[in-house]
Nucleic acid binder design. Structure first.
Lengths: 239, 239
DNA sequence: TTATTAAATTTACAGTGTAAATATACAACG
DNA sequence: CGTTGTATATTTACACTGTAAATTTAATAA
């Protein structure tokens, strides 16, 4: 008997498949994701999934895309939770706190995006670029605001070489030095929160096990101290 | 025919197996490491490997242990390359530069240690603890020297809760606040270099592709600026 | 020489992703 | 209504993985 009767033919099967995949990832880790396991859970045979995803990598890419969307939502929510002018610093801190909060809420999604957890899978950057750019737009946007207000400490920040950016910032930073500076600072900040959060999530920061929050907030303060200066209304009057 | 004649019975077969594993990892990535693949390369059947490693995880653990040793060697070499008193800051920077240099030389070993690349494998911390502690001893040692010289900026650094340290610092930091501070700073510094290096190695810092060095040295300077102060010989004379 | 041990073999099993051929339910058209 | 077409599943099959068990042989010790 091929193709059973439409007993309860769930309309949006791709979503159901992804849900099962997430459940499986949450329980057994992202690396032991199995098409057959998903099929088993859904009472379906494995090759049936191939009608919705050409291969396992396509499913993983769809999961990553969704994870980026979820991550980006939280980042933008955090940014929008501190609206209005004059509160740019609080806005930056809110996105910083939201970064760790989302990672702790969804450690497997975090590792799926920013880690290397799926064997032999290389993410198709070109396909993921839009949702990836959106997810960091909260950070780059807020940094951009601070820069426009003259609140970025004018250090000699190394700028990226645009010719090397493999389609990464073709749209957002073509030669514009301001944008490049903003992007550079965002990268430096990102690498710092990523360093701490990824170590915490993978349990490689043992002594702090239950109090990574204190260390993380210390790091956020340190980030602000490094890059931010208070706006100087009359910079020329200084000696 | 079982067990072929001792034609060229390489004495140290475990080492040869590990070499083949490294070669395979370098070519196809750590996630696609295969006992059968190793056996094929060595002209041997797969179960033969079980005489030297009880299972695949044991082989991975051995690889990780060796990687830690190699990493620790480079860290200690860097530390020892700037000997003598009065050069503690240069010593710190040397270990920092050696960190990235080793990671770029052995990206797969780096990801094997500090990443999550092998499906379903969880490292046996207890077994790896000694070689792991040794590998970070260059950093903690130098930080300790700077601390003893009063060159550590006395910030309110969050301390780890020893009761949470799952055997991590049982020997090195039992309640001693000085040691805990040093360990804390080492963790913060580690998370920063790890953040930058892991992003660079996994190609997630696209715009800087060929010039991660500049960004990294900027970060090292920033680290030093945050934690280090020049020694004050007469601190009480200040107003 | 004989017995023992160590190291490799063959065989087998359960699991994986995926390609190919096949069968059926459903929708549209004559 | 009957026929056809297509989407969606199934079954079957293949190559691959790690690993357990039994077996066979080379090297060593008694």
């Amino acid at each position: 008997m091929a193709r059973p009767t439409k007993k309860q033919q769930q309309a949006n099967l791709p979503e159901i498949i992804k849900d099962a995949a997430w459940r499986q990832i949450s329980e057994a880790g992202a690396s032991s994701l199995s098409l057959r396991g998903i099929a088993r859970e859904l009472g379906i045979t494995a090759p049936a999934i191939y009608n919705y995803f050409p291969d396992r990598d396509a499913l993983v890419t769809a999961l990553i895309s969704d994870a980026y969307a979820s991550f980006g939502d939280r980042q933008l929510d955090a940014m929008n939770s501190v609206p209005g002018p004059g509160r740019e610093l609080d806005r930056l801190r809110a996105t910083g706190l939201a970064y760790r909060a989302w990672a702790l809420d969804h450690p497997h999604r975090y590792m799926l995006i920013f880690g290397n957890p799926v064997p032999g899978y290389v993410p198709p950057m070109q396909e993921l670029m839009p949702v990836m750019m959106r997810s960091i737009s909260a950070l780059t946007g807020t940094i951009g605001e601070l820069y426009a207000l003259g609140m970025i400490d004018p250090q000699a920040i190394p700028l990226p070489q645009v010719e090397n950016s493999q389609g990464f910032c073709d749209t957002m930073a073509k030669g514009d030095e301001t944008t490049l500076t903003v992007l550079s600072i965002a990268m430096l900040i990102w690498s710092r929160v990523h360093g701490l959060v990824s170590l915490e999530i993978t349990g490689k920061l043992p002594p702090y096990a239950s109090d990574g929050a204190a260390l993380y907030e210390f790091e956020l303060d340190s980030v602000a101290r490094q890059f931010i200066r208070l706006p100087q209304n009359a910079p020329d009057t200084a000696p």
